[in-house]
């Protein structure tokens, strides 16, 4: 590989890492505060991708995308709120298996609904930021660079929310001791809904941002969920930094794995080999919270 190719594939890896980070950060935030692994996280991502494509195309090429994104993130957040109130509240503090089954049931319901509403065909939307930048004989899609910048901005936003606002302080307190937080005068029930809505909105943001760069079909929920799990296992659930590092590793492995002929058929397998290795050496992931 020439240095130019390495840069090309590295940027491709970063673009993968970008949307995967946004999705995994939501999953991780929800797990950190609520101690629930949300099996429906990929479903919220998928709904948002479909809504972005349909509304965006309706509103018109280019600028329509941004309108679609706005609606999509709102829809994902709103569905997240309903799911939290109707399902999650009943499973907090229960065994992990009950929680997994509960949120898995939600993912099946959403998958069915998506097939009914949007059909089984793949859909696409044109990039709102067309064009490319040429560098060293290779060209880089401007939209990929936008995705990378957006992920950095969103990561910074999540960090600022957690460490610079009262809401974030309350979320961190809930991670440590929800009972004490309740007795300190914070409505933890409402806080959990808020956290879940933020997590759902991040899933939606990921699905929306990825839509112009991939075909949107009714199996992208499990595709992204599996990768977000791998990222969370590698980086550690409950840590935003862990999500970022995990997403970088997974994004790069997929990008380089696919272009090297010898590894092409196994690119995804490498992700899970790394995941298994991390599980063996450090079960809670590189930056994960200890089990409580």
């Amino acid at each position: 590989m020439t240095p130019g190719q390495v840069l090309l594939f590295a940027v491709g890896g970063l673009a993968n890492a970008a949307y995967l980070f946004i999705v995994a950060a939501g999953l991780s935030l929800v797990f950190g505060a609520l101690r629930v692994i949300n099996m429906a996280h990929g479903s919220l991502y998928m709904i948002a991708a479909f809504v972005t494509v349909v509304i965006g195309n309706q509103l018109g090429a280019g600028l329509g995308f941004w309108g679609g994104m706005l609606v999509a993130v709102a829809v994902a957040g709103a569905i997240g709120g309903v799911v939290e109130v109707l399902v999650l509240r009943r499973v907090y503090g229960r065994e992990h298996l009950v929680q997994l089954l509960g949120t898995y049931a939600v993912s099946l319901i959403i998958a069915g609904a998506v097939r009914i509403v949007f059909g089984a065909n793949y859909r696409t939307i044109v990039s709102p930021i067309p064009g490319h930048i040429d560098l060293g004989g290779y060209s880089y899609a401007s939209y990929s660079l936008f995705m990378i910048a957006a992920a950095i901005a969103i990561g910074g936003g999540v960090w600022a929310m957690l460490y610079r606002t009262n809401l974030g302080r309350n979320i961190r307190a809930a991670v440590a001791d929800p009972d004490l937080l309740n007795a300190t005068g914070v409505n933890v029930t409402r806080l959990y809904t808020t956290v879940f809505v933020i997590g759902a909105a991040l899933a939606g943001l990921g699905g929306s941002i990825v839509a112009p760069s991939q075909a949107v079909g009714s199996s992208i929920d499990t595709d992204v969920l599996v990768l977000a799990f791998a990222i969370s296992v590698i980086g550690g659930l409950g840590s935003i930094v862990g999500s970022a590092v995990g997403a970088l590793i997974v994004g790069m492995v997929i990008s380089f794995g696919l272009v090297i002929p010898a590894t092409n058929p196994f690119a995804l397998a490498f992700v899970f080999i790394i995941m298994t290795a991390v599980l063996i050496v450090r079960p809670r992931g590189l930056f994960g919270l200890p089990e409580s």
């Binding site: 302080r169 309350n170 961190r172 307190a173 440590a176 001791d177 004490l180 937080l181 300190t184 005068g185």
Partner: peptide
């Protein structure tokens, strides 16, 4: 002496100031 261990001393007080 239960406190929010992962919050600063200052934050532990701030968090109760709305009540």
């Amino acid at each position: 002496a239960r406190c929010f261990q992962n919050l600063t001393v200052d934050e532990n007080l701030e968090i109760a100031s709305h009540a």
